[in-house]
Nucleic acid binder design. Structure first.
Lengths: 157, 157
DNA sequence: CCGGATTTGGTACTTTAGTATGAACCTGAA
DNA sequence: TTCAGGTTCATACTAAAGTACCAAATCCGG
């Protein structure tokens, strides 16, 4: 039960999607027998299916892909050796928790709170909490300042 | 013409998608006549349509929610030079006006719009105008992305 | 002088960010 | 087992950011 709960919290999205997909496949089989669409034209039926699945695709994509997660920023890692090193001491002084460091990293990459939430599979509320704590630890008041300070202290790449 | 261009820049994705959808609907009508799927079962046909449209939905969502995903110019300016120099060519490509460059510089320093307005002795409205134009030229949607892109293109110190 | 681009600034609106507060859960240490 | 710190999430609010549309003044080249 415990294990199930943990797994559920972590992967509920995937499970829900799988479940919905299964339901849809069953629905398609039922519809195939024309109990429902007996006097509908095939054209309309196919159109409905197409629209529905397109909407589902949009929804799935919205849930799973943060707008920039696997495109621009992350694949930019410049070849060769970087003359850059994270200042571990500064990091330690700031006493940032693991989650806060994660969030800070995404903030520096230009993520919005919503995008961070999607990337980490958390709610926006949680992100806001982390961000607020982050700001007070960094002694800043805004996102831009946090980015500047993080780069200056070299606590992010 | 001016207005059209602005609207086009903003809604081109939607227009393109609408166009594609129209094409697909026409395709469906053609397919309806079974020239192509003469000896395929209806089930398989519907499944293909569903999968295709779901994929299209995913694609549409990814495009719509990440207009910054297509980053052609980013791969150009990679070669290794001295780390601290402003890339004049990138600056020229972007066609940023003088004011826009000033504003961008302050944004990267973490200034708020109000602070920028006070620093440049302008109104917040004006700053917002500059910032908006800046974002469309940089092809970003938020402050953090602008900071990241400006640093990546090395158009600010 | 005209047309285009720039700069400035306004109104009205939506969206995102940020703060404050409370609460539930988990984990490791006392 | 209690307790502190960390993580998660919610509601409710304020503040800042951003968009769209408009308009006026300036400057500059044909």
């Amino acid at each position: 039960m415990e294990a199930f709960h943990r797994i559920w919290k972590k992967w509920r999205h995937l499970l829900i999607y799988g479940f919905i997909l299964g339901l849809l496949i069953i629905s398609l089989r039922l519809l195939r027998w024309k109990y429902v669409i007996a006097d509908q034209s095939l054209e309309i039926y196919i159109g409905i299916v197409a629209l529905f699945f397109m909407g589902l695709g949009v929804w799935v994509a919205m849930q799973w892909f943060s707008p920039q997660s696997k495109t621009a920023e992350e694949t930019e890692s410049i070849p060769g050796q970087e003359p850059f090193s994270i200042d571990e001491k500064a990091l330690e002084r700031l006493q940032l928790t693991e989650r806060e460091q994660e969030v800070l990293g995404l903030i520096v990459k230009g993520y919005s709170n919503l995008e961070i939430a999607q990337a980490l599979h958390l709610s926006v509320s949680t992100i806001k909490t982390h961000v607020s704590n982050l700001y007070s630890k960094l002694e800043v008041k805004r996102r831009g300042q946090a980015i500047g300070k993080a780069r200056k202290l070299r606590i992010v790449e």
